[in-house]
Amino acid sequence: MYKQTKKYCTWVIFILLIGLLAGCASSNSNVASDKAATESAPMEGANAESSSESIGDKAATDTAVTTGGESDTAAGGGFSSETAAGAEGFNQKIIYTAALSMQVDELAEAAASLRNAIHQSGGYILQFQDTRHEGEIGSTYTIKVPAAGFMSFIDRIELIEHKTFERNIGGKDVSDEYVDLESRLKARQLVETRLLAMMDGAVKADDLLKFSAQLSEVQLEIERIKGRIRYLDNNVAFSTVELRLYQTNQELKKENVEKPSLGGRMSDAITGSTKVVWDAINLLLIVLAGAVPVAAVIAVIAIPAVWIYRRKKKVTKTNKMPNSDEEGQPPTV
């Protein structure tokens, strides 16, 4: 009986110990969860503050951009919009130009190949001029091609059969000018908005006229800036290629000149002789016209001199002639 009682007591004590241990474990887990919740609360508050600060910074940045700060621009100068979007921080705008000169064997075949290359590149001919000289025929092209395919178009042209090929490729970076234009445009647009608001609230006619004049000037400047931006965008998007194709050392077809007939040769001889005579008459008339002033001066001097000379000669002759009455009388003794 005593042994059984002792055994029962042992089992009861064992069960109680297990219950105590389980209760301690649950209380520890509750304390840990409460502590974690207490620590997470400040973290959530900090996150909320940081998010509000980031939102405020973003709003401040947007405000700065609205007031005329620099903004991100799409990349240009030989890159497509997709490539520009993938390149972070790349906002260069470059205008590419090329001056090419190519000597070919057959100008017609080279021109056909050139048109195919332009079509494949998505470009177009802006200006064309055909030239023909003795021993040389050529064509000059001004071509616009997309900037993304600028170098590939140059490579296609180089594949045309040719004797000589010269090229000069250059680029002009207009990124600074573009950013400056965008900033000026945003500033002018803000002034335009303010002037419109002032005009809506204007009561006096003088104020309304003054605001209207200022608004006209601002809008005119906005249109100028937009026009310059469009010009830069077009030249950045489409590169310019100046190409000269020419063919030399080729026998150009000419009409055979037949020998003139006898009548034609006689007509040519008469025409030539008439021209010589007419030229001689013209020359004589020119000489006479030039001699008239000299002859007038000589006449003014020579006529009085001749008259005086003849007068003196006549007087001298009269004095030397004997008296007829005296010759008829006899001599006196």
Rank of each mutant, 00 (worst) to 15 (best):
T316W: 14
E177I: 12
Y124S: 10
A269V: 10
P260K: 13
M102C: 04
Q120Y: 09
L232S: 03
Q329W: 07
I229Y: 05
E182R: 10
Q219T: 01
E255V: 01
A74N: 14
V276Y: 15
I281Y: 12
W11I: 15
T248V: 15
I298F: 14
F128A: 05
E136H: 06
T274D: 12
A280R: 15
D62G: 09
E192H: 03
T61K: 15
L284E: 14
G68S: 02
E182P: 02
D200P: 11
G69P: 05
E327P: 04
K317Q: 14
V236D: 02
H119Q: 09
K7F: 12
A98F: 09
V276I: 04
P304D: 06
S139G: 08
L159P: 01
A22H: 01
A87L: 15
G149L: 11
T318S: 12
L245I: 09
G264I: 01
P304W: 05
E192Q: 11
V306E: 06
L252P: 13
D180T: 08
D207A: 04
I13Y: 13
L114G: 08
I55Y: 01
I154G: 08
A187Y: 02
T193C: 07
I118N: 05
A202E: 08
E258N: 00
P330D: 03
T318F: 08
T83L: 14
T142I: 14
S29W: 10
E70V: 07
R188K: 14
V333I: 10
A197W: 04
R244F: 10
L209K: 09
E182Y: 02
I222A: 06
D206V: 01
A117W: 06
G201V: 01
P146N: 11
A205G: 04
T63V: 09
N28H: 12
I95L: 06
K226E: 11
D173P: 02
L185I: 00
T193H: 07
K253S: 12
S81Q: 13
E134P: 09
R244G: 06
V315K: 15
I286P: 00
M199I: 05
S175V: 04
E182H: 07
T332S: 07
K320G: 00
K312E: 13
M199S: 07
D34H: 06
P330L: 14
L21W: 06
A41N: 12
E70M: 13
N168W: 09
N282P: 02
V179R: 12
E251R: 09
I18D: 00
A147N: 09
G78A: 10
S26Q: 14
Q129T: 01
G19Q: 12
I160K: 05
G45R: 10
E177C: 01
A37L: 06
T67W: 11
V65A: 09
T83F: 12
D233M: 03
V31S: 15
E223T: 05
K35A: 14
V294S: 13
D105K: 06
M321C: 03
F165C: 04
K3Q: 11
F165L: 05
N323Y: 02
I160L: 03
V287I: 05
R265F: 02
D105M: 03
V287T: 07
F153W: 04
S51D: 04
K210G: 04
I160S: 08
